[in-house]
């Protein structure tokens, strides 16, 4: 009998260990990023971080202002979410409540296929096909703009948002819907005023996950946004995102230099941005539950 309990305890610990690896890994990553970024505080100094110019390689003066990088990430993310959230949520509502079984059988696999396309391939498509179209359509100097990046990112976020929202909407209890319909509400009214609001926590989670993907995406963005580090809030300008900066510059940077610690600083800021996002989302969900 005792050996049975020992076995059970052992398994319990193993499972506990497996469950807490994610916490452990996050802590390690924060520690590592922090350790490499710390030199930045003394040399060149934290105030440099809030400058408006990112010019890490220069024979004259190296500047590490990350505001243009933050603005780049923010612009690209906001525009991408403007495209992806309505499309994703409306699509999910349609898929789970309106579409016929046959339609669903076709649409759903294709959605999942879209989620599986590697981001380099999407970036390549953006560079060759989408960028010239955006350039022509909006009469821009170049198609390599924040907008092109946003459209590609929206393509990548839509499957995430749609699949998870679909699950959330499908799992709303039938009784809600039936109660609404029996009170004489139309099918459409029931969908928008009863079913979708009831699924809101799941939809918020879906949007947050989609947003996480958008902020963290690197390759496709790097290929189509032009990567000019100018401080701008216009989606028609070329922007340089934080992820693209790290990816493009990390390979070249001399070990232990100011530029090196600056890149880790960028990573740290990015991490805190996504962390904040998750926090806000959880707050919102808690309030919903109360």
């Amino acid at each position: 009998m005792s050996s049975f309990f020992q076995k059970e305890n052992l398994i319990k610990y193993l499972l506990q260990g497996a469950a807490s690896t994610s916490i452990f890994i996050v802590l390690l990553i924060v520690l590592f990023l922090g350790k490499e970024a710390i030199p930045f505080f003394s040399e060149p100094g934290i105030s440099n971080l809030f400058g408006t110019t990112w010019k890490p390689v220069s024979f004259k003066e190296e500047l590490f202002g990350i505001l243009p990088l933050i603005s780049g990430t923010v612009v690209v993310t906001i525009v991408a979410m403007f495209i992806a959230v309505p499309t994703g949520v409306i699509g999910a509502a349609y898929l789970s409540q309106v579409a016929h079984e046959k339609e669903r059988e076709i649409l759903k696999p294709f959605m999942e296929l879209l989620a599986g396309i590697p981001s380099v391939v999407i970036g390549f498509f953006g560079l060759i096909i989408l960028a010239p179209i955006v350039k022509e359509l909006f009469g821009l100097q170049t198609g390599l703009s924040a907008l092109t990046g946003s459209i590609l990112l929206a393509l990548m976020a839509i499957p995430t948002i749609m699949t998870i929202s679909d699950d959330a909407i499908s799992s709303v209890p039938r009784s809600y819907k039936e109660a609404s319909l029996s009170l004489g509400a139309s099918k459409f009214y029931t969908l928008w005023k009863v079913t979708v609001p009831a699924a809101m926590p799941g939809i918020v989670a879906a949007v947050l996950l989609g947003m996480g993907r958008v902020i963290g995406e690197t390759m496709a963005v790097m290929m189509v946004t032009g990567n000019a580090a100018s401080l701008t809030l216009s989606p028609f300008n070329s922007v340089r995102t934080m992820t693209a900066t790290i990816a493009a510059e990390m390979g070249e940077v001399p070990f232990g230099s100011e530029h090196y610690s600056a890149l880790f600083m960028v990573g740290l800021v990015l991490l805190f941005m996504t962390f904040g996002l998750v926090l806000i989302g959880q707050r919102y969900l808690q309030r919903q539950e109360n």
Partner: peptide, 9 residues
């Protein structure tokens, strides 16, 4: 000298 800030990289 430095590249123009508007240069696409």
């Amino acid at each position: 000298d430095d590249y123009t800030q508007g240069a696409l990289l």
